[in-house]
Amino acid sequence: MKRDKEFEMYIKDAEKPFSGWDFSFISETGRVSSSMLSWSYGSMVIPLVQNASSMLDMGTGGGELLSKFQPFPEMICATEAYPPNVPIAKKRLEPLGVKVHQIGEDNLLPFSDRQFDLIVNKHEEYSPQEVRRVISDDGIFLTQQVGGTDCKELNEHFGVPLNDVFSHWNLSFAKHQLQSHGFDVLEAKQEFPVQRFYDVGALLYYLKAIPWQMPDFQRDNYIEELYSIHLMIQSKGYFDVRQHRFILKARAK
Rank of each mutant, 00 (worst) to 15 (best):
C77A: 15
L65E: 05
G63D: 03
V86S: 12
G62Q: 00
K91S: 14
T79D: 10
A89E: 05
K91L: 12
A78N: 07
P83T: 05
R92A: 05
E80M: 13
G63T: 03
F69Q: 14
K90A: 07
G62W: 02
R92C: 03
A89L: 04
A89H: 05
E74Q: 12
A78F: 11
Q70A: 15
R92M: 05
A78H: 10
F69A: 12
I88D: 02
A78M: 11
C77Y: 15
P71Q: 14
L66N: 08
P84F: 10
K68L: 15
E74W: 00
E64P: 02
P71H: 15
P73H: 12
F72S: 02
K68A: 14
I88N: 01
K68P: 00
F72Y: 15
A89F: 10
M75K: 13
G62A: 05
L65N: 04
E64S: 06
T79Y: 12
I88H: 03
A78Q: 08
Y82F: 15
T79I: 14
Y82D: 06
R92Y: 04
E74I: 08
Q70M: 14
G61I: 01
F69E: 10
K91R: 12
F72N: 03
K90N: 04
P83I: 06
K90S: 07
E80Q: 09
A81R: 15
S67T: 05
P73Q: 13
N85H: 10
L65A: 11
I76G: 03
G63P: 00
A81Y: 12
A81Q: 11
P71R: 13
G63K: 01
C77V: 09
P71E: 10
Y82H: 14
K90Y: 05
Y82K: 09
P71T: 09
E64Y: 12
L65R: 04
Q70R: 12
C77F: 13
F72W: 06
V86A: 10
L93C: 05
F69T: 08
A89Y: 02
C77P: 01
G62V: 01
I88A: 03
G63E: 00
L93R: 00
P84E: 11
Y82W: 15
R92P: 01
L65C: 05
S67E: 14
E64A: 07
F72R: 05
I88G: 02
S67G: 06
A89K: 02
K90P: 04
A81E: 07
R92D: 00
I76R: 06
K90R: 14
G61Y: 00
E64T: 01
Y82A: 08
N85V: 07
F69H: 13
N85D: 12
E64R: 11
L66I: 09
A78S: 09
G62K: 01
L93Y: 01
V86P: 10
G62I: 00
K68H: 12
G62T: 03
P71L: 10
S67Q: 09
K91N: 14
L93Q: 02
F69R: 09
A89Q: 02
I88K: 01
A78W: 13
A81K: 11
A89C: 04
P84D: 07
V86M: 15
G63R: 01
L65W: 11
I88F: 04
L93S: 00
A81C: 09
V86G: 12
P87F: 08
G61F: 00
E74R: 04
P87G: 08
I76M: 13
L66C: 08
K68S: 15
I76T: 11
E74L: 13
L93P: 00
P71N: 11
P84H: 12
V86D: 14
P87Y: 11
K90L: 02
E74K: 13
P84V: 07
